[in-house]
Amino acid sequence: MSGLSAWLIQRLSALYLAGFTVYALVRLAMAESFSHAAWSDWLAAPLNAVTLWLAALALLLHAWVGGRDVLLDYVHPLGLRVVMLTILAGWLLGSGIWFGAILLEVM
């Protein structure tokens, strides 16, 4: 993923994440009860689950494009660059798979 597609993905994911962040904070401020039951019920509702799946996807893509740009700009030795890009990919993919597995379980 590079060039125009990365540029476009970065901006589309930014728009979604900006909207989602504001929504999530407002929703959190409006929450009436904090309990495991209320939390997992909220996540199990289909609309909330879809919103969260999309947010996770947008976040991972956004973090990959942005983190990759930063590494390519500042890390020049090829070996170190490959290692750091691999760590970044593992960090994001690991988090994403873990998050997806939990969400599937709650649904």
């Binding site: 495991h36 960090w91 690991g94």
Partner: peptide, 29 residues
């Protein structure tokens, strides 16, 4: 903008861990 982005990338895995334990049951929450 770059620094804050990197900082939030570092928070992704710990945040996922918190998400995991918060849903593991009432004790985890």
């Amino acid at each position: 903008h770059r620094l804050t982005g990197v900082l939030m990338i570092l928070a992704i895995l710990p945040a996922t861990w918190l998400f995991a334990i918060s849903l593991s049951g009432p004790a985890g929450f």
